[in-house]
Design a protein around this nucleic acid. Structure first.
Length: 271
DNA sequence: AGGGTGACCTGTCGGC
DNA sequence: TGCCGACAGGTCACCC
């Protein structure tokens, strides 16, 4: 479910409501990808100062540390004034004076990890290698071009790797490459100035529009209010193998790259 | 150090 | 209807 836009939409939906809350209780379900890394009692009484996002991580700033939350493949957060009855896939509840923040995650690829500070090794192990924020000022064309020139892997996989630019997941990678008119299999280093420029703009605009639309093009995403995306953004290529390209009517193709599906239009995306 | 692979876990869907 | 394999929005540890 969650790429950068979904994570950001989630953040926007509850950050203002949880700010200032004090932690009353922590309830854990089945194990997530990593252990919390601290005794839950350690969190009690701490105040939630705010919620930031770094890549696909949400950072819950507390007065004596921070919680790094990741939604994995199937996670979603909800924030409700009363604690709802926990279901079989609810694996983390943070009960606070202002409401209950809950991580629901059937596949349990998500995680909640505590660190005393952002620079602590537990946090840096997860955040340290991340690339620039695509929606921030740091996403400049020249360094992006420079980074892409250093890589020999197919451009789709460089985007997914997240060490050049963060937040682009499997859906938006295909979508951005379509927008830029670039074949996903093209080696990163072989992209010329013009294509890099188009890709830079495409990554930005695809992600920004998805945030504005309230989440992804896909069906089961909902923010922490329980509201689903507006579905205003139709996928151009993702999930459309065998269907007609919306721009040129050619048939959309699906291939496998690094065990993930990639979709593209063979006519609109020639190298 | 970059690149390729397997691993983690559960649910759903299509085909036989 | 039932079973089985393929696949799903992420990313880490591991090997070369």
């Amino acid at each position: 479910m969650p790429e950068l836009p979904e994570v950001e939409v989630t953040r926007l939906s509850f950050a203002h409501r949880i700010a200032g809350a004090k932690v009353l209780q922590v309830q854990l379900g089945k194990p997530l990808r990593w252990p919390l890394g601290v005794a839950p009692e350690e969190l009690l009484g701490q105040q939630v100062l705010g919620v930031r996002r770094r890549g696909k991580y949400l950072l819950l700033d507390l007065d004596r540390g921070l919680l790094l939350m990741h939604l994995g493949m199937s996670g979603s957060l909800s924030f409700a004034s009363e604690q709802p009855l926990p279901g079989p896939h609810d694996h983390f509840d943070l009960l606070t004076t202002l409401g209950c923040l809950r991580l629901h995650d059937p596949r349990r690829f998500g995680a909640v990890v505590f660190a005393r500070q952002e620079q602590a090794p537990q946090a840096q192990k997860l955040l340290g290698h991340l690339g620039v924020e695509p929606l921030g000022d740091g996403f400049a064309l020249a360094p992006f071009a420079e980074a892409l020139k250093q890589r020999r892997a197919p451009i789709k996989q460089v985007l997914l790797a997240g060490d050049v630019v963060v937040g682009v997941g499997n859906i938006y990678a295909s979508e951005a490459l379509f927008l830029a008119g670039i074949r996903p299999t093209t080696r990163s280093e072989r992209l010329g100035r013009l294509r890099v420029e188009r890709l830079h703009a495409a990554v930005r605009s695809v992600l920004a529009r998805a945030v504005q639309a309230g989440g992804s093009t896909l069906r089961d995403f909902s923010n922490a209010d329980g509201q689903s995306g507006h579905f205003q953004l139709e996928a151009q290529v993702y999930g459309r193998a065998g269907q007609a390209c919306r721009r040129c009517d050619s048939l959309i193709k699906m291939i496998r790259q690094g065990q993930r599906s990639t979709f593209y239009c063979p006519n609109c995306q020639k190298n």
